[in-house]
Nucleic acid binder design. Structure first.
Lengths: 342, 342
DNA sequence: ATGAAAGCGCTAACAA
DNA sequence: TTGTTAGCGCTTTCAT
């Protein structure tokens, strides 16, 4: 447990004042220093194996060079790439990230924001999912730099980065419609999650913009974005409209559940019913029938949000756009076909 | 940007000294305090919305209540559960985690250990993969609490938590052997990764313990734990021994690559060649032919490592066993069958 | 039961 | 160009 080397140690060793040492070791220093002293200090620091104590420095400068990253659940495969995207820009700038999982629970989220603030994070990147997150808004109003991912918070100046989910849903809808489907159901995501709500709205828009009557469309909402709920909701869809020929699902896992239910109901995809997903999660293309889905840019979304955060942290917050919309891409695979002739 | 409330503010408000406030707000305080003052301080703290400044407290106490978690790559699906396992025990104890991705690069790993130490982490949980990690060993010798996951570091007293990979490989081998396979090839993982090496050794042991001649066994090593290398290595295996009837792969992704190559080579699994994987990654059971594999306990491994870390941090390090081996489980699915009769 | 004082390691304004 | 000084917010020893 060798005690850590501090500036004081180097000062003693070089016979110079601590503040001089501090200056000499500060990379982006402007104060003039004699080359002699500078060199001596650097060498001694090197020799003693000096490492700056960031805790002390943070206390003094009121900056921890750490940002908080709030995500619903890192085990959800769409989030790790986002995290790496954030890291890819923050780490080179000297920032570390504290990642916390909210499990989409209001109370937990609130606690975690406080925990992050107690630890003095310089900002928070919040991959919001809940439709309302009062805590983070309050934190932002309190002056904490905040950037949200996936979620636009109305009535604030909090920059947000979102995927063009509307365009994604429209592309999927368009594909189904073009193939001739008219009895298109929507397996919607949870109403309280932003993506669920957003995609549902987009679905409605896509339908009406093609002159379809909303009342004729079956819409069933899942409570969770998972396979089990996908199965349940699909059963409900088929119960409500047995003549459904296509199901546009709010995400891939729901779609997987849908396909599974169809199979156990003796129906096949895409012959009997076409299905589309959303996200294009890893390994999806290895699961038959290979799902037609909408690919979103996870890594890039994280990177963009981080770039915004960095700009704010570096004092260029004015250059950051409130809204950033990332393009999505329809990935056509095998789960969509023309409807059977009646 | 309302300024944060500090102890001083509360002291002023309650007309009492800061040190008294500090005592009153310290949850595990033993010093005697008059109920009157205690109550008044607590109320005021509440009223003003006081939140302790952990940076300041860390500087004073030399404890940040933060641990570092080093993993190769969070986008590798086996790591998120480990992270959540760690979190599940550390968070309730008041510890936060700083997660860093090493990308299995020696230089990066070294830098990250330093970064974590600069930030004053109280300990590091290191899900080691590289066969040699001199940096972390040095950090541990310097007095930093370290627990490793997946990897035993010989000649040190660093506690490690590993899955019983040997038993897992043996179980897979045993299954193949029992089914009648005798020309069993091993698609090994990268030699420089601990799991690759460990599983290769286990494979050899499993073979020899059944009286098989090692020279008769085809062993090809992948350079990466991914599908592409699985395909390449499988081609090599079939080239070396076209009569191979079973391929025991060092992990699931390699196995997926194997199956893919077999398919493109006009062979089918399990009819022509049986295949086994390792890890039982998510969604594996949805990819045909459903892979027979060895399931390891990711979440639990993280939790156990964290419990060890917590024990050390709380001063009960003597109770922590150097070695913890977690049981694994063979999951039989559809990728193994008896070999075709010659 | 409470106050006074020191100091964790660093930075920054000011002085020389 | 370098030193002095003060202090970030908190904990803790010592005194009262």
């Amino acid at each position: 447990m060798n005690k850590r080397i501090t500036l004081k140690d180097i000062a003693r060793e070089t016979g110079v004042h601590v503040s001089t040492v501090s200056r000499a070791l500060d990379p982006k220093r402007d104060t003039p220093l004699s080359d002699d002293v500078l060199l001596r200090i650097r060498e001694t620091a090197q020799k003693l194996g000096y490492r700056p104590n960031r805790v002390a420095s943070s206390l003094r400068t009121q900056r921890t060079m750490t940002i908080g990253v709030m995500i619903p659940d890192i085990t959800n495969m769409i989030f790790p790439p986002i995290v790496r995207g954030i890291e890819s820009v923050m780490e080179p700038l000297g920032y570390a990230s504290m990642i916390v999982n909210t499990d989409s629970q209001r109370g937990r989220e609130q606690r975690l924001v406080e925990i992050l603030q107690d630890r003095g994070v310089d900002g928070i990147i919040h991959t919001a999912v809940l439709l309302e997150d009062p805590t983070i808004v309050r934190a932002a109003e309190g002056g904490l730099p905040v950037v949200t991912l996936n979620r636009k918070i109305e009535g604030t100046r909090i920059p947000y980065v979102i995927n063009d989910e509307t365009a994604g849903i429209d592309a999927a809808f368009s594909l189904l419609h073009t193939k001739g489907h008219r009895r298109i159901a929507h397996l919607a995501g949870p109403r309280n999650l932003s993506t669920g709500q957003l995609r549902l709205d987009a679905f409605r828009t896509a339908a009406t913009s093609r002159g379809m009557d909303l009342d004729s469309l079956t819409i069933v909402e899942a409570e969770q974005f998972d396979e089990a709920d996908g199965r349940r909701a699909t059963a409900e869809i088929l119960r409500r409209d047995p003549r459904t020929t296509a199901i546009l699902c709010a995400n891939d896992r729901l779609a997987l559940g849908t396909i599974d239910h169809l199979r156990s109901a003796g129906l096949s995809c895409p012959e009997d019913i076409s299905v589309t997903g959303f996200n294009d999660m890893p390994f999806l293309d290895m699961i038959p029938p290979r799902l037609t889905t909408v690919r979103i840019q996870q890594f890039e979304a994280g990177a963009v949000a981080a770039r915004h955060m960095a700009a704010i942290l570096l004092g260029n917050g004015d250059d950051v756009p409130i809204e950033t919309i990332l393009p999505v891409q329809l990935i056509e695979r095998d789960s969509v076909a023309a409807p059977r002739k009646a």
